[in-house]
Amino acid sequence: MWEYTDKVKEHFLNPRNVGEVENPDGAATVGSLACGDALKLTFKLDEAGRIVDARFKTFGCASAIASASALTEMIKGMTVEEAAKITNQDIANFLGGLPEEKMHCSVMGREALEAAIAHYRGEPAPTEEGKIICECFGVTEEEIARVVRENNLRTIEEVTNYTKAGGGCGGCHEAIQEIIDRVRGEAKEIIRPKLSNIQKIKMIEETIDREIRPTLQMDGGDLELIDVVGNRVLVATRGACASCAASHLTMKQVVEAKLRELVWPELEVEEVSQ
Protein backbone atom coordinates (compact mmCIF):
# COMPACT_ATOMS: atom_id res chain seq x y z
CA MET A 1 0.00 0.00 0.00
CA TRP A 2 1.21 3.50 -0.80
CA GLU A 3 2.05 5.90 1.97
CA TYR A 4 -0.16 8.82 1.05
CA THR A 5 -0.29 11.97 3.11
CA ASP A 6 -3.59 12.90 4.72
CA LYS A 7 -3.89 15.72 2.25
CA VAL A 8 -3.59 13.35 -0.72
CA LYS A 9 -6.22 11.10 0.82
CA GLU A 10 -8.47 14.03 1.53
CA HIS A 11 -8.27 15.36 -2.02
CA PHE A 12 -8.78 11.85 -3.39
CA LEU A 13 -11.87 11.19 -1.30
CA ASN A 14 -13.29 14.69 -1.73
CA PRO A 15 -11.88 16.04 -4.97
CA ARG A 16 -12.45 19.74 -5.56
CA ASN A 17 -13.53 21.33 -8.83
CA VAL A 18 -14.58 18.21 -10.68
CA GLY A 19 -16.03 18.69 -14.15
CA GLU A 20 -15.53 20.98 -17.09
CA VAL A 21 -15.79 24.76 -17.28
CA GLU A 22 -18.30 25.90 -19.87
CA ASN A 23 -16.74 27.88 -22.71
CA PRO A 24 -13.28 27.61 -21.24
CA ASP A 25 -10.48 30.04 -22.10
CA GLY A 26 -7.92 27.27 -21.77
CA ALA A 27 -8.45 23.53 -22.12
CA ALA A 28 -6.25 20.48 -22.59
CA THR A 29 -6.21 16.73 -22.12
CA VAL A 30 -2.96 14.89 -21.42
CA GLY A 31 -2.20 11.23 -20.77
CA SER A 32 -4.13 8.32 -22.22
CA LEU A 33 -6.18 5.32 -21.27
CA ALA A 34 -3.40 3.02 -22.37
CA CYS A 35 -0.95 4.66 -19.98
CA GLY A 36 -3.34 4.30 -17.09
CA ASP A 37 -3.95 7.95 -16.37
CA ALA A 38 -5.30 10.98 -18.13
CA LEU A 39 -6.26 14.49 -17.09
CA LYS A 40 -8.54 17.01 -18.71
CA LEU A 41 -8.11 20.53 -17.40
CA THR A 42 -10.25 23.55 -18.27
CA PHE A 43 -10.10 27.09 -16.90
CA LYS A 44 -11.81 30.41 -17.32
CA LEU A 45 -10.45 33.94 -16.86
CA ASP A 46 -12.15 37.04 -15.51
CA GLU A 47 -11.80 40.51 -17.06
CA ALA A 48 -8.66 41.16 -15.07
CA GLY A 49 -7.05 38.08 -16.57
CA ARG A 50 -7.21 36.00 -13.41
CA ILE A 51 -8.33 32.38 -13.35
CA VAL A 52 -11.82 32.47 -11.85
CA ASP A 53 -12.72 28.88 -12.40
CA ALA A 54 -10.71 25.74 -13.03
CA ARG A 55 -12.07 22.22 -13.31
CA PHE A 56 -10.68 18.79 -13.96
CA LYS A 57 -11.59 15.28 -14.98
CA THR A 58 -9.15 12.49 -14.22
CA PHE A 59 -8.85 8.85 -15.06
CA GLY A 60 -6.22 7.44 -12.78
CA CYS A 61 -5.12 6.36 -9.36
CA ALA A 62 -5.64 8.13 -6.05
CA SER A 63 -2.61 10.40 -6.38
CA ALA A 64 -3.52 11.34 -9.96
CA ILE A 65 -6.95 12.45 -8.78
CA ALA A 66 -5.50 14.27 -5.77
CA SER A 67 -2.85 16.02 -7.91
CA ALA A 68 -5.48 17.27 -10.34
CA SER A 69 -7.71 18.45 -7.53
CA ALA A 70 -4.77 20.23 -5.90
CA LEU A 71 -3.80 21.86 -9.17
CA THR A 72 -7.23 23.42 -9.69
CA GLU A 73 -7.15 24.78 -6.14
CA MET A 74 -3.69 26.24 -6.65
CA ILE A 75 -4.34 28.08 -9.89
CA LYS A 76 -7.64 29.68 -8.94
CA GLY A 77 -7.07 33.39 -8.49
CA MET A 78 -3.74 33.38 -10.33
CA THR A 79 -2.97 35.19 -13.54
CA VAL A 80 -1.98 33.00 -16.45
CA GLU A 81 1.61 34.20 -16.03
CA GLU A 82 1.63 33.19 -12.39
CA ALA A 83 0.05 29.82 -13.13
CA ALA A 84 2.62 29.18 -15.85
CA LYS A 85 5.34 29.19 -13.18
CA ILE A 86 3.88 26.26 -11.24
CA THR A 87 6.19 23.23 -11.28
CA ASN A 88 5.37 19.61 -10.60
CA GLN A 89 7.21 19.98 -7.32
CA ASP A 90 4.81 22.77 -6.30
CA ILE A 91 1.90 20.41 -6.85
CA ALA A 92 3.57 17.67 -4.83
CA ASN A 93 4.42 20.17 -2.08
CA PHE A 94 0.82 21.39 -1.95
CA LEU A 95 -0.17 17.83 -1.12
CA GLY A 96 2.52 17.47 1.52
CA GLY A 97 4.56 15.29 -0.82
CA LEU A 98 3.89 12.26 -2.99
CA PRO A 99 5.53 8.83 -2.91
CA GLU A 100 8.55 8.87 -5.25
CA GLU A 101 6.93 6.28 -7.52
CA LYS A 102 3.95 8.56 -7.90
CA MET A 103 5.72 11.78 -8.82
CA HIS A 104 4.57 11.29 -12.41
CA CYS A 105 1.09 12.27 -11.22
CA SER A 106 2.36 15.73 -10.32
CA VAL A 107 4.18 15.92 -13.66
CA MET A 108 0.93 15.09 -15.44
CA GLY A 109 -0.71 17.98 -13.60
CA ARG A 110 1.96 20.40 -14.70
CA GLU A 111 1.76 19.12 -18.28
CA ALA A 112 -1.99 19.60 -18.40
CA LEU A 113 -1.62 23.10 -17.02
CA GLU A 114 1.01 24.03 -19.59
CA ALA A 115 -0.99 22.54 -22.42
CA ALA A 116 -4.11 24.40 -21.31
CA ILE A 117 -2.16 27.66 -21.11
CA ALA A 118 -0.68 27.00 -24.55
CA HIS A 119 -4.20 26.42 -25.83
CA TYR A 120 -5.28 29.72 -24.33
CA ARG A 121 -2.37 31.50 -25.96
CA GLY A 122 -3.00 29.79 -29.28
CA GLU A 123 0.31 27.97 -29.15
CA PRO A 124 0.85 24.27 -29.82
CA ALA A 125 0.86 22.04 -26.74
CA PRO A 126 4.46 21.78 -25.51
CA THR A 127 4.44 18.04 -24.93
CA GLU A 128 3.40 17.27 -28.47
CA GLU A 129 6.70 18.38 -29.88
CA GLY A 130 9.98 16.56 -29.92
CA LYS A 131 11.30 13.12 -30.49
CA ILE A 132 9.65 10.27 -28.61
CA ILE A 133 12.22 8.48 -26.47
CA CYS A 134 9.99 6.03 -24.62
CA GLU A 135 7.60 4.33 -27.00
CA CYS A 136 5.81 2.46 -24.25
CA PHE A 137 4.58 5.65 -22.61
CA GLY A 138 5.04 8.18 -25.41
CA VAL A 139 7.49 10.42 -23.54
CA THR A 140 9.61 12.89 -25.49
CA GLU A 141 13.25 13.79 -25.14
CA GLU A 142 12.34 17.32 -24.06
CA GLU A 143 10.02 16.14 -21.38
CA ILE A 144 12.65 13.85 -19.90
CA ALA A 145 15.36 16.51 -20.07
CA ARG A 146 13.05 18.92 -18.36
CA VAL A 147 12.14 16.76 -15.37
CA VAL A 148 15.78 15.80 -14.96
CA ARG A 149 16.69 19.49 -14.83
CA GLU A 150 13.83 20.70 -12.68
CA ASN A 151 13.90 17.87 -10.18
CA ASN A 152 17.60 17.20 -10.21
CA LEU A 153 17.16 13.56 -11.16
CA ARG A 154 20.16 11.25 -11.34
CA THR A 155 18.96 7.75 -12.20
CA ILE A 156 16.76 6.04 -14.78
CA GLU A 157 14.56 4.83 -11.95
CA GLU A 158 13.92 8.41 -10.88
CA VAL A 159 13.08 9.40 -14.45
CA THR A 160 10.60 6.51 -14.52
CA ASN A 161 9.04 7.69 -11.26
CA TYR A 162 8.59 11.18 -12.64
CA THR A 163 7.57 10.49 -16.25
CA LYS A 164 6.88 6.74 -16.49
CA ALA A 165 9.47 6.67 -19.28
CA GLY A 166 11.40 3.43 -18.98
CA GLY A 167 8.74 1.67 -16.93
CA GLY A 168 7.63 -0.70 -19.69
CA CYS A 169 9.82 -2.85 -21.90
CA GLY A 170 12.97 -1.04 -20.80
CA GLY A 171 14.12 -0.57 -24.39
CA CYS A 172 14.67 3.15 -23.86
CA HIS A 173 16.93 2.92 -20.79
CA GLU A 174 20.08 3.69 -22.70
CA ALA A 175 18.56 6.75 -24.33
CA ILE A 176 17.30 7.98 -20.95
CA GLN A 177 20.74 7.57 -19.43
CA GLU A 178 22.21 9.65 -22.26
CA ILE A 179 19.73 12.44 -21.56
CA ILE A 180 20.54 12.35 -17.84
CA ASP A 181 24.27 12.53 -18.60
CA ARG A 182 23.82 15.36 -21.07
CA VAL A 183 21.61 17.46 -18.80
CA ARG A 184 23.87 16.95 -15.79
CA GLY A 185 26.89 17.74 -17.93
CA GLU A 186 25.28 20.98 -19.07
CA ALA A 187 24.57 21.98 -15.52
CA LYS A 188 28.27 21.71 -14.77
CA GLU A 189 29.41 23.68 -17.80
CA ILE A 190 27.50 26.80 -16.84
CA ILE A 191 29.57 27.14 -13.72
CA ARG A 192 32.73 29.13 -13.94
CA PRO A 193 35.42 26.94 -12.42
CA LYS A 194 36.91 29.57 -10.14
CA LEU A 195 34.45 30.51 -7.46
CA SER A 196 35.81 31.87 -4.25
CA ASN A 197 34.10 31.01 -1.01
CA ILE A 198 32.83 34.55 -0.65
CA GLN A 199 31.42 34.51 -4.17
CA LYS A 200 29.78 31.18 -3.50
CA ILE A 201 28.08 32.35 -0.33
CA LYS A 202 26.91 35.50 -2.06
CA MET A 203 25.44 33.57 -4.94
CA ILE A 204 23.73 31.14 -2.61
CA GLU A 205 22.21 34.00 -0.67
CA GLU A 206 21.02 35.73 -3.81
CA THR A 207 19.55 32.55 -5.22
CA ILE A 208 17.68 31.79 -2.02
CA ASP A 209 16.33 35.36 -1.89
CA ARG A 210 15.30 35.46 -5.51
CA GLU A 211 14.21 31.93 -6.30
CA ILE A 212 13.18 30.20 -3.14
CA ARG A 213 11.96 32.50 -0.40
CA PRO A 214 9.13 34.13 -2.38
CA THR A 215 7.41 30.77 -2.97
CA LEU A 216 7.89 29.67 0.62
CA GLN A 217 6.59 32.98 1.95
CA MET A 218 3.44 32.53 -0.10
CA ASP A 219 2.68 29.54 2.10
CA GLY A 220 3.63 31.38 5.29
CA GLY A 221 7.04 29.80 5.55
CA ASP A 222 10.61 31.03 5.24
CA LEU A 223 14.16 29.85 4.92
CA GLU A 224 17.36 31.25 6.38
CA LEU A 225 20.93 30.63 5.31
CA ILE A 226 22.95 29.75 8.41
CA ASP A 227 26.37 28.85 7.06
CA VAL A 228 28.27 27.42 4.14
CA VAL A 229 30.96 24.84 4.96
CA GLY A 230 32.71 23.63 1.84
CA ASN A 231 29.88 22.39 -0.32
CA ARG A 232 27.49 21.98 2.61
CA VAL A 233 24.80 24.61 2.70
CA LEU A 234 23.27 24.84 6.14
CA VAL A 235 19.79 26.29 6.23
CA ALA A 236 17.01 26.62 8.79
CA THR A 237 13.29 26.67 8.10
CA ARG A 238 10.97 29.20 9.66
CA GLY A 239 7.25 29.75 10.01
CA ALA A 240 4.89 27.20 8.48
CA CYS A 241 7.75 25.20 6.96
CA ALA A 242 9.36 24.55 10.31
CA SER A 243 6.32 22.75 11.74
CA CYS A 244 5.43 20.80 8.62
CA ALA A 245 7.46 17.60 8.81
CA ALA A 246 6.24 16.31 5.47
CA SER A 247 7.61 19.31 3.62
CA HIS A 248 11.19 18.96 4.86
CA LEU A 249 12.30 16.34 2.38
CA THR A 250 10.78 18.04 -0.61
CA MET A 251 12.04 21.43 0.60
CA LYS A 252 15.56 20.06 0.73
CA GLN A 253 15.17 18.65 -2.78
CA VAL A 254 13.85 21.89 -4.22
CA VAL A 255 16.42 24.13 -2.61
CA GLU A 256 19.23 21.77 -3.50
CA ALA A 257 18.10 21.49 -7.11
CA LYS A 258 17.96 25.26 -7.50
CA LEU A 259 21.32 25.88 -5.86
CA ARG A 260 22.99 23.16 -7.88
CA GLU A 261 21.54 24.52 -11.06
CA LEU A 262 22.41 28.15 -10.46
CA VAL A 263 25.43 28.12 -8.17
CA TRP A 264 27.49 24.96 -7.95
CA PRO A 265 26.61 21.40 -8.95
CA GLU A 266 28.05 19.73 -5.88
CA LEU A 267 26.21 21.65 -3.21
CA GLU A 268 24.44 19.64 -0.51
CA VAL A 269 21.68 21.26 1.45
CA GLU A 270 21.40 20.37 5.11
CA GLU A 271 18.77 21.49 7.46
CA VAL A 272 19.79 22.63 10.91
CA SER A 273 17.53 23.65 13.74
CA GLN A 274 18.43 27.16 14.82
Binding site: F59, C61, A64, I65, T160, G167
Partner: peptide, 30 residues
Protein backbone atom coordinates in the same frame (compact mmCIF):
# COMPACT_ATOMS: atom_id res chain seq x y z
CA UNK B 1 -12.76 3.64 -17.61
CA UNK B 2 -11.81 3.63 -13.94
CA UNK B 3 -8.48 2.85 -12.40
CA UNK B 4 -8.05 -0.06 -10.01
CA UNK B 5 -6.09 1.65 -7.26
CA UNK B 6 -8.72 4.34 -7.00
CA UNK B 7 -11.42 1.66 -6.65
CA UNK B 8 -9.43 -0.21 -3.99
CA UNK B 9 -8.80 2.90 -1.91
CA UNK B 10 -12.46 3.89 -2.06
CA UNK B 11 -13.38 0.34 -1.00
CA UNK B 12 -10.83 0.66 1.77
CA UNK B 13 -12.96 3.44 3.26
CA UNK B 14 -15.58 0.74 3.88
CA UNK B 15 -12.92 -1.71 5.13
CA UNK B 16 -13.47 -3.88 2.06
CA UNK B 17 -10.24 -5.62 1.04
CA UNK B 18 -9.60 -6.78 -2.53
CA UNK B 19 -6.78 -6.41 -5.01
CA UNK B 20 -6.26 -5.11 -8.52
CA UNK B 21 -4.29 -5.85 -11.64
CA UNK B 22 -3.92 -2.19 -12.51
CA UNK B 23 -0.56 -0.63 -13.19
CA UNK B 24 -0.57 1.43 -10.01
CA UNK B 25 -0.98 -1.65 -7.88
CA UNK B 26 1.19 -4.10 -9.78
CA UNK B 27 4.37 -2.41 -8.59
CA UNK B 28 5.26 -1.61 -12.18
CA UNK B 29 3.78 0.91 -14.57
CA UNK B 30 1.96 -1.65 -16.64
Amino acid sequence: FVEGEAILLRLDEYAICASSGSACTSGSLQ
